[in-house]
Write a protein that binds this DNA or RNA. Sequence first.
DNA 1: TAATTAATTGTAATAATATAACAATAATTG
DNA 2: CAATTATTGTTATATTATTACAATTAATTA
Lengths: 174, 174
Amino acid sequence: MISNSTTAYRQHDHHRCLKAALAQARNRCSARKARLTPIRESVLHLLWQSHRPLGAYKIIEQLSASSGKRILPPTVYRALDFLLELGLIHRLATLNAYIGCPFPDSVHSDYFLVCRECGSVAECSADSVNKAIVSTAERAGFRVESQTVEILGLCTPCQSTVEQPALEQPGVKQ
Amino acid sequence: MISNSTTAYRQHDHHRCLKAALAQARNRCSARKARLTPIRESVLHLLWQSHRPLGAYKIIEQLSASSGKRILPPTVYRALDFLLELGLIHRLATLNAYIGCPFPDSVHSDYFLVCRECGSVAECSADSVNKAIVSTAERAGFRVESQTVEILGLCTPCQSTVEQPALEQPGVKQ
DNA sequence: TAATTAATTGTAATAATATAACAATAATTG
DNA sequence: CAATTATTGTTATATTATTACAATTAATTA
């Protein structure tokens, strides 16, 4: 299993995440002879501000604010498409939002752990999940080509923060 | 594993699917003291025209056409919300579309097999997948509350229909 | 049963996300 | 440098979904 769940939900030196992501992006782009233009890099940079996904229109807002000029949707969507294509970011279908990929270099089918409390998202890739999915699909005669797996719940820190649903305690009524 | 993959992708007596779905819906509604009004039933009926999911605006179109009067978005979205709430239909996040649930009465976390060729969608529920997801999440300290699992690929009939991606055959160039 | 309340539907307006089409500009290649 | 290709700018619009409030219908209760 690869995962960034140990850092994503906790205090950490996020600057390192950002730096690593940008470095990997540059590598990947030069390997593929693709151009990491200023706009594309800015979008990636914004997505790596935190481990919380950003909607396209938030990106447009922030980019407009930081650049001083009005950035329009196609500009951002094109940058997002480029980054998606290269595997540098992912789109979360359940949130209509985008997030940086922490390990673009390792082949993986991804699987997202979305914390409903803090909004942070960790990415995992676990063989057990993939195998279960593929073999279940096979039993149904279905050939898997791609998967979308998005899990909603609570990350470790938020489990202690958030109101617990009161357990039924038989015989103990308050 | 429960699944409707054996029927969903093949010729079958679809009228039975429809009838069963409507019967289950009526049961569930009376059990929950919820009202299956004409609009709600029409929407459910439309979603059971086939095993292909339908977007909200397609439903609006079809409902407007069949009823002769202009049905507006909130009407349909309200019916969809009602049906979702009761577990009679599902929303597919990757398609922004809705589909009838073939087994609303059994508790299940669902898992969709979306055929990219014919567009039909089967629903499965497999313990192996759930267990893999939950245990992987646990290893990341994450408490799962709900899951979205949508698999894109080819159903059995379409596997024989569709162009195969040419396998690399070393030494055999054409 | 009439009066009251609650649930459902109608309607207008608009929000949020995403794309199409074409012009302008910048970068790369021959 | 000229020609080509890739990228960005711009206008317009498509698609999906929600808000807010009015009207109506059904259920409940006095």
